[in-house]
Amino acid sequence: MFTTLNWRALRWATCWTMLLLLAVVVGSRSLQNFDGALVAYLFGTLFATFGIVYRYAVWLQRPATQLYWRRGWQLLFSRRFARYARAVATRAAVDVGGQAFIFRRSRARGIAHVLLAWGCLSAFAITLPLTFGWIHFTLQAGSTTLYEAHVFGFRVLTFPHGGLLAFNLFHALNWSSLMVIAGAAYFIRRRVTDAGQIATQAFEMDWLPLVLLVLISVTGLGLTWDYEFMQGRAHAFMGITHAITVILLLVWLPFGKFFHVFQRPAQLGVALYQLEGAAGPQAVCPHTGEPFTSAMHVADVKQVATEIGLDFTLASGGSHLDLSPQGKRAALARAHLAARTRSGRLFG
Protein backbone atom coordinates (compact mmCIF):
# COMPACT_ATOMS: atom_id res chain seq x y z
CA MET A 1 0.00 0.00 0.00
CA PHE A 2 2.78 2.44 0.91
CA THR A 3 4.46 1.94 -2.46
CA THR A 4 1.45 3.36 -4.29
CA LEU A 5 0.61 5.99 -1.71
CA ASN A 6 0.99 9.48 -3.12
CA TRP A 7 2.57 11.37 -0.25
CA ARG A 8 2.02 14.80 -1.79
CA ALA A 9 -1.67 14.08 -2.24
CA LEU A 10 -1.80 12.63 1.26
CA ARG A 11 -0.39 15.85 2.71
CA TRP A 12 -2.91 17.99 0.80
CA ALA A 13 -5.82 15.73 1.75
CA THR A 14 -4.84 15.69 5.43
CA CYS A 15 -4.38 19.44 5.42
CA TRP A 16 -7.81 20.16 3.87
CA THR A 17 -9.56 17.65 6.13
CA MET A 18 -7.99 19.26 9.20
CA LEU A 19 -8.93 22.71 7.92
CA LEU A 20 -12.53 21.60 7.48
CA LEU A 21 -12.57 20.14 10.97
CA LEU A 22 -11.21 23.40 12.34
CA ALA A 23 -13.82 25.35 10.37
CA VAL A 24 -16.54 23.14 11.86
CA VAL A 25 -15.30 23.78 15.40
CA VAL A 26 -14.93 27.53 14.86
CA GLY A 27 -18.09 27.96 12.76
CA SER A 28 -20.26 26.07 15.24
CA ARG A 29 -18.88 28.17 18.11
CA SER A 30 -16.87 25.39 19.72
CA LEU A 31 -19.56 22.86 18.76
CA GLN A 32 -22.25 24.54 20.86
CA ASN A 33 -24.42 24.87 17.70
CA PHE A 34 -23.42 21.46 16.36
CA ASP A 35 -26.31 19.02 16.07
CA GLY A 36 -25.13 15.70 17.50
CA ALA A 37 -27.75 13.83 15.45
CA LEU A 38 -25.80 14.77 12.34
CA VAL A 39 -22.43 13.46 13.47
CA ALA A 40 -22.50 10.54 11.01
CA TYR A 41 -22.98 13.02 8.16
CA LEU A 42 -19.99 15.00 9.46
CA PHE A 43 -17.73 11.94 9.42
CA GLY A 44 -18.99 11.08 5.92
CA THR A 45 -18.19 14.61 4.77
CA LEU A 46 -14.71 14.54 6.31
CA PHE A 47 -14.02 11.23 4.54
CA ALA A 48 -15.33 12.67 1.26
CA THR A 49 -13.14 15.77 1.68
CA PHE A 50 -10.06 13.63 2.28
CA GLY A 51 -10.83 11.41 -0.72
CA ILE A 52 -11.71 14.24 -3.09
CA VAL A 53 -8.62 16.30 -2.24
CA TYR A 54 -6.40 13.22 -2.46
CA ARG A 55 -7.73 12.27 -5.88
CA TYR A 56 -7.67 15.87 -7.08
CA ALA A 57 -4.03 16.22 -6.02
CA VAL A 58 -3.11 12.98 -7.79
CA TRP A 59 -5.03 14.12 -10.86
CA LEU A 60 -3.18 17.46 -10.91
CA GLN A 61 0.13 15.62 -11.05
CA ARG A 62 -0.65 14.21 -14.50
CA PRO A 63 1.59 16.15 -16.91
CA ALA A 64 -1.31 17.19 -19.17
CA THR A 65 -3.50 18.28 -16.26
CA GLN A 66 -0.64 20.10 -14.60
CA LEU A 67 0.05 22.02 -17.79
CA TYR A 68 -3.54 23.27 -18.14
CA TRP A 69 -3.72 24.02 -14.42
CA ARG A 70 -0.53 26.11 -14.59
CA ARG A 71 -1.40 27.80 -17.88
CA GLY A 72 -4.94 28.57 -16.68
CA TRP A 73 -3.74 30.46 -13.58
CA GLN A 74 -0.87 32.11 -15.47
CA LEU A 75 -3.27 33.43 -18.09
CA LEU A 76 -5.87 34.58 -15.58
CA PHE A 77 -3.33 36.61 -13.64
CA SER A 78 -1.58 37.95 -16.73
CA ARG A 79 -1.73 41.51 -18.07
CA ARG A 80 -5.09 40.60 -19.64
CA PHE A 81 -6.57 39.96 -16.20
CA ALA A 82 -9.71 42.10 -16.66
CA ARG A 83 -10.57 40.51 -20.01
CA TYR A 84 -9.85 36.97 -18.87
CA ALA A 85 -11.64 37.38 -15.54
CA ARG A 86 -14.73 38.51 -17.49
CA ALA A 87 -14.35 35.53 -19.82
CA VAL A 88 -14.08 33.12 -16.88
CA ALA A 89 -17.13 34.65 -15.21
CA THR A 90 -19.14 34.40 -18.45
CA ARG A 91 -18.07 30.83 -19.16
CA ALA A 92 -18.72 29.84 -15.56
CA ALA A 93 -22.25 31.22 -15.80
CA VAL A 94 -22.97 29.76 -19.25
CA ASP A 95 -21.16 26.41 -19.10
CA VAL A 96 -21.03 25.50 -15.42
CA GLY A 97 -24.13 27.29 -14.19
CA GLY A 98 -26.39 27.03 -17.23
CA GLN A 99 -24.68 23.93 -18.67
CA ALA A 100 -25.24 25.25 -22.18
CA PHE A 101 -22.98 22.62 -23.73
CA ILE A 102 -25.28 19.85 -22.48
CA PHE A 103 -28.32 21.63 -23.94
CA ARG A 104 -26.49 21.52 -27.28
CA ARG A 105 -26.21 17.74 -26.95
CA SER A 106 -29.97 17.65 -26.54
CA ARG A 107 -32.52 20.02 -25.01
CA ALA A 108 -34.10 17.30 -22.89
CA ARG A 109 -30.68 16.18 -21.64
CA GLY A 110 -29.84 19.76 -20.80
CA ILE A 111 -33.01 20.27 -18.77
CA ALA A 112 -32.58 16.94 -17.01
CA HIS A 113 -28.94 17.63 -16.18
CA VAL A 114 -29.69 21.12 -14.88
CA LEU A 115 -32.37 19.64 -12.62
CA LEU A 116 -30.03 16.90 -11.44
CA ALA A 117 -27.01 19.14 -10.96
CA TRP A 118 -28.77 22.04 -9.26
CA GLY A 119 -30.90 19.67 -7.21
CA CYS A 120 -27.70 18.07 -5.87
CA LEU A 121 -25.79 21.33 -5.45
CA SER A 122 -28.67 23.05 -3.65
CA ALA A 123 -29.07 20.03 -1.37
CA PHE A 124 -25.38 20.14 -0.49
CA ALA A 125 -25.54 23.91 0.02
CA ILE A 126 -28.31 23.36 2.56
CA THR A 127 -27.12 20.15 4.20
CA LEU A 128 -23.45 20.89 4.71
CA PRO A 129 -23.80 24.15 6.71
CA LEU A 130 -26.46 22.44 8.85
CA THR A 131 -24.18 19.42 9.36
CA PHE A 132 -21.24 21.65 10.30
CA GLY A 133 -23.32 23.60 12.80
CA TRP A 134 -22.79 26.78 10.77
CA ILE A 135 -26.52 27.33 10.44
CA HIS A 136 -29.10 26.57 13.08
CA PHE A 137 -32.63 27.65 13.91
CA THR A 138 -34.12 28.63 17.25
CA LEU A 139 -37.41 29.98 18.53
CA GLN A 140 -37.17 33.67 19.37
CA ALA A 141 -36.89 34.14 23.10
CA GLY A 142 -40.34 34.81 24.57
CA SER A 143 -42.16 33.90 21.35
CA THR A 144 -43.86 30.75 20.13
CA THR A 145 -44.47 31.95 16.58
CA LEU A 146 -41.18 33.48 15.49
CA TYR A 147 -38.17 31.51 14.30
CA GLU A 148 -34.62 32.81 14.08
CA ALA A 149 -31.94 31.65 11.66
CA HIS A 150 -28.35 31.88 12.89
CA VAL A 151 -25.28 31.73 10.68
CA PHE A 152 -21.99 31.04 12.48
CA GLY A 153 -23.85 31.85 15.67
CA PHE A 154 -25.03 35.26 14.48
CA ARG A 155 -28.76 35.89 14.08
CA VAL A 156 -29.42 36.82 10.45
CA LEU A 157 -33.15 36.32 9.98
CA THR A 158 -36.38 36.30 11.95
CA PHE A 159 -39.52 34.87 10.41
CA PRO A 160 -42.92 33.51 11.46
CA HIS A 161 -42.87 29.71 11.50
CA GLY A 162 -46.17 29.45 9.67
CA GLY A 163 -45.26 31.79 6.80
CA LEU A 164 -44.36 31.18 3.18
CA LEU A 165 -40.67 31.81 3.83
CA ALA A 166 -40.60 29.24 6.65
CA PHE A 167 -42.49 26.74 4.50
CA ASN A 168 -39.96 27.08 1.69
CA LEU A 169 -36.94 27.13 4.00
CA PHE A 170 -38.00 23.98 5.81
CA HIS A 171 -39.00 22.24 2.57
CA ALA A 172 -36.03 23.40 0.49
CA LEU A 173 -34.49 19.92 0.57
CA ASN A 174 -37.77 18.51 -0.71
CA TRP A 175 -37.64 20.83 -3.71
CA SER A 176 -34.05 19.67 -4.29
CA SER A 177 -35.20 16.04 -4.06
CA LEU A 178 -37.96 16.57 -6.59
CA MET A 179 -35.49 18.19 -8.99
CA VAL A 180 -33.08 15.28 -8.57
CA ILE A 181 -35.80 12.65 -9.08
CA ALA A 182 -37.05 14.38 -12.25
CA GLY A 183 -33.52 14.64 -13.66
CA ALA A 184 -32.55 11.10 -12.66
CA ALA A 185 -35.76 9.68 -14.15
CA TYR A 186 -34.81 11.10 -17.55
CA PHE A 187 -31.30 9.63 -17.38
CA ILE A 188 -32.58 6.25 -16.18
CA ARG A 189 -35.00 6.19 -19.10
CA ARG A 190 -32.13 7.03 -21.44
CA ARG A 191 -30.02 4.24 -19.99
CA VAL A 192 -32.69 1.64 -20.75
CA THR A 193 -33.74 2.91 -24.19
CA ASP A 194 -30.66 4.38 -25.89
CA ALA A 195 -28.75 1.60 -27.69
CA GLY A 196 -25.45 3.49 -27.52
CA GLN A 197 -25.78 3.98 -23.77
CA ILE A 198 -26.82 0.37 -23.23
CA ALA A 199 -23.75 -0.85 -25.11
CA THR A 200 -21.20 1.23 -23.23
CA GLN A 201 -22.63 1.70 -19.73
CA ALA A 202 -21.15 0.21 -16.58
CA PHE A 203 -22.99 -0.34 -13.31
CA GLU A 204 -20.58 1.45 -10.99
CA MET A 205 -20.02 4.45 -13.27
CA ASP A 206 -23.45 4.95 -14.76
CA TRP A 207 -26.16 3.22 -12.73
CA LEU A 208 -24.90 3.41 -9.18
CA PRO A 209 -24.83 7.24 -9.10
CA LEU A 210 -28.40 7.44 -10.41
CA VAL A 211 -29.66 4.77 -8.01
CA LEU A 212 -27.97 6.49 -5.06
CA LEU A 213 -29.41 9.89 -5.97
CA VAL A 214 -32.92 8.50 -6.31
CA LEU A 215 -32.64 6.59 -3.01
CA ILE A 216 -31.40 9.69 -1.19
CA SER A 217 -34.19 11.81 -2.65
CA VAL A 218 -36.94 9.29 -1.95
CA THR A 219 -35.83 8.62 1.64
CA GLY A 220 -35.42 12.38 2.16
CA LEU A 221 -38.97 12.99 0.96
CA GLY A 222 -39.96 10.09 3.19
CA LEU A 223 -38.86 12.06 6.25
CA THR A 224 -41.30 14.87 5.37
CA TRP A 225 -44.01 12.36 4.45
CA ASP A 226 -43.51 10.68 7.80
CA TYR A 227 -43.96 13.76 9.96
CA GLU A 228 -46.66 15.30 7.77
CA PHE A 229 -48.85 12.25 7.25
CA MET A 230 -47.70 9.45 9.58
CA GLN A 231 -47.32 11.34 12.84
CA GLY A 232 -43.61 10.47 12.85
CA ARG A 233 -44.24 6.77 13.38
CA ALA A 234 -41.59 5.77 10.81
CA HIS A 235 -39.08 8.44 11.73
CA ALA A 236 -36.37 6.05 12.90
CA PHE A 237 -36.61 3.96 9.74
CA MET A 238 -36.74 6.98 7.43
CA GLY A 239 -33.93 8.74 9.28
CA ILE A 240 -31.62 5.73 9.23
CA THR A 241 -32.23 4.77 5.60
CA HIS A 242 -31.71 8.38 4.55
CA ALA A 243 -28.50 8.63 6.57
CA ILE A 244 -27.18 5.37 5.11
CA THR A 245 -27.82 6.46 1.52
CA VAL A 246 -26.35 9.93 2.04
CA ILE A 247 -23.24 8.53 3.72
CA LEU A 248 -22.85 6.00 0.90
CA LEU A 249 -22.93 8.91 -1.55
CA LEU A 250 -20.38 10.87 0.47
CA VAL A 251 -18.05 7.89 0.63
CA TRP A 252 -18.54 7.26 -3.10
CA LEU A 253 -17.94 10.93 -4.10
CA PRO A 254 -14.16 10.72 -4.61
CA PHE A 255 -14.26 7.46 -6.56
CA GLY A 256 -17.12 7.39 -9.00
CA LYS A 257 -18.82 9.55 -11.56
CA PHE A 258 -19.50 12.37 -9.11
CA PHE A 259 -15.84 13.35 -9.23
CA HIS A 260 -16.58 15.06 -12.54
CA VAL A 261 -18.27 17.82 -10.53
CA PHE A 262 -14.83 18.78 -9.25
CA GLN A 263 -13.12 18.28 -12.61
CA ARG A 264 -15.58 20.30 -14.67
CA PRO A 265 -14.23 23.77 -13.68
CA ALA A 266 -11.06 22.81 -15.60
CA GLN A 267 -13.14 23.68 -18.66
CA LEU A 268 -12.80 27.34 -17.65
CA GLY A 269 -9.01 27.05 -17.83
CA VAL A 270 -9.33 25.50 -21.28
CA ALA A 271 -11.57 28.40 -22.38
CA LEU A 272 -8.84 30.89 -21.37
CA TYR A 273 -6.21 28.76 -23.05
CA GLN A 274 -8.20 28.78 -26.29
CA LEU A 275 -8.74 32.55 -26.10
CA GLU A 276 -5.03 33.13 -25.66
CA GLY A 277 -4.25 30.63 -28.43
CA ALA A 278 -6.63 32.26 -30.90
CA ALA A 279 -4.98 35.65 -30.32
CA GLY A 280 -1.46 34.29 -30.90
CA PRO A 281 0.34 32.60 -33.80
CA GLN A 282 -1.36 29.59 -35.36
CA ALA A 283 0.12 26.21 -36.21
CA VAL A 284 0.00 25.65 -39.97
CA CYS A 285 -0.10 22.06 -41.19
CA PRO A 286 2.80 21.31 -43.57
CA HIS A 287 0.47 19.02 -45.54
CA THR A 288 -2.70 21.08 -45.90
CA GLY A 289 -1.11 24.51 -45.58
CA GLU A 290 -4.01 25.47 -43.29
CA PRO A 291 -3.93 26.58 -39.65
CA PHE A 292 -5.44 23.93 -37.40
CA THR A 293 -4.80 25.05 -33.83
CA SER A 294 -2.63 27.53 -31.94
CA ALA A 295 1.13 27.18 -32.12
CA MET A 296 1.08 27.26 -28.30
CA HIS A 297 -1.18 24.21 -28.24
CA VAL A 298 1.09 22.16 -30.51
CA ALA A 299 4.16 23.20 -28.49
CA ASP A 300 2.43 22.28 -25.23
CA VAL A 301 1.22 18.89 -26.50
CA LYS A 302 4.78 18.15 -27.64
CA GLN A 303 6.03 19.08 -24.17
CA VAL A 304 3.45 16.82 -22.53
CA ALA A 305 4.38 14.03 -24.95
CA THR A 306 8.04 14.39 -23.98
CA GLU A 307 7.19 14.37 -20.27
CA ILE A 308 5.25 11.11 -20.62
CA GLY A 309 8.03 9.50 -22.63
CA LEU A 310 6.76 9.90 -26.21
CA ASP A 311 9.02 11.10 -29.01
CA PHE A 312 7.49 11.80 -32.41
CA THR A 313 10.64 13.43 -33.81
CA LEU A 314 11.00 12.48 -37.46
CA ALA A 315 14.28 11.47 -39.12
CA SER A 316 13.57 14.08 -41.77
CA GLY A 317 13.42 16.76 -39.05
CA GLY A 318 10.39 18.24 -37.35
CA SER A 319 7.77 16.24 -35.54
CA HIS A 320 4.85 14.09 -36.59
CA LEU A 321 2.81 16.28 -34.23
CA ASP A 322 3.39 19.30 -36.49
CA LEU A 323 0.84 17.78 -38.85
CA SER A 324 -2.89 18.43 -38.59
CA PRO A 325 -5.12 15.36 -38.16
CA GLN A 326 -5.73 15.37 -41.92
CA GLY A 327 -2.00 15.71 -42.52
CA LYS A 328 -1.29 12.72 -40.29
CA ARG A 329 -3.85 10.60 -42.13
CA ALA A 330 -2.28 11.60 -45.46
CA ALA A 331 1.23 10.81 -44.17
CA LEU A 332 0.04 7.36 -43.17
CA ALA A 333 -1.61 6.74 -46.55
CA ARG A 334 1.51 7.91 -48.39
CA ALA A 335 3.74 5.68 -46.29
CA HIS A 336 1.45 2.74 -47.01
CA LEU A 337 1.46 3.46 -50.76
CA ALA A 338 5.26 3.77 -50.69
CA ALA A 339 5.58 0.38 -48.96
CA ARG A 340 3.22 -1.23 -51.47
CA THR A 341 5.06 0.40 -54.38
CA ARG A 342 8.43 -0.83 -53.09
CA SER A 343 7.05 -4.37 -52.89
CA GLY A 344 6.06 -4.24 -56.55
CA ARG A 345 2.42 -5.15 -55.84
CA LEU A 346 -0.15 -2.51 -55.03
CA PHE A 347 -2.71 -5.09 -53.93
CA GLY A 348 -2.58 -8.54 -52.50
Binding site: F101, F312, K328
Partner: peptide
Protein backbone atom coordinates in the same frame (compact mmCIF):
# COMPACT_ATOMS: atom_id res chain seq x y z
CA UNK B 1 -19.17 12.78 -21.64
CA UNK B 2 -19.02 13.70 -17.96
CA UNK B 3 -15.29 14.32 -17.96
CA UNK B 4 -14.28 15.64 -21.39
CA UNK B 5 -13.35 19.33 -21.21
CA UNK B 6 -12.86 19.67 -24.98
CA UNK B 7 -9.22 20.73 -24.79
CA UNK B 8 -8.43 18.82 -28.01
CA UNK B 9 -5.11 17.48 -26.73
CA UNK B 10 -6.14 14.08 -28.07
CA UNK B 11 -6.91 15.57 -31.49
CA UNK B 12 -3.43 17.08 -31.71
CA UNK B 13 -1.56 14.12 -30.22
CA UNK B 14 -3.18 11.13 -31.95
CA UNK B 15 -0.57 9.96 -34.50
CA UNK B 16 -3.33 8.60 -36.76
CA UNK B 17 -5.41 11.81 -36.83
CA UNK B 18 -8.52 10.11 -35.49
CA UNK B 19 -10.31 11.97 -32.63
CA UNK B 20 -12.79 14.68 -33.55
CA UNK B 21 -13.70 17.54 -31.27
CA UNK B 22 -17.18 19.04 -31.29
CA UNK B 23 -16.80 22.50 -29.80
CA UNK B 24 -20.49 23.36 -29.27
CA UNK B 25 -21.07 20.24 -27.19
CA UNK B 26 -17.58 20.37 -25.61
CA UNK B 27 -16.93 16.78 -26.47
Amino acid sequence: TARCIACANCVIACPFGVPKKFEPTKL
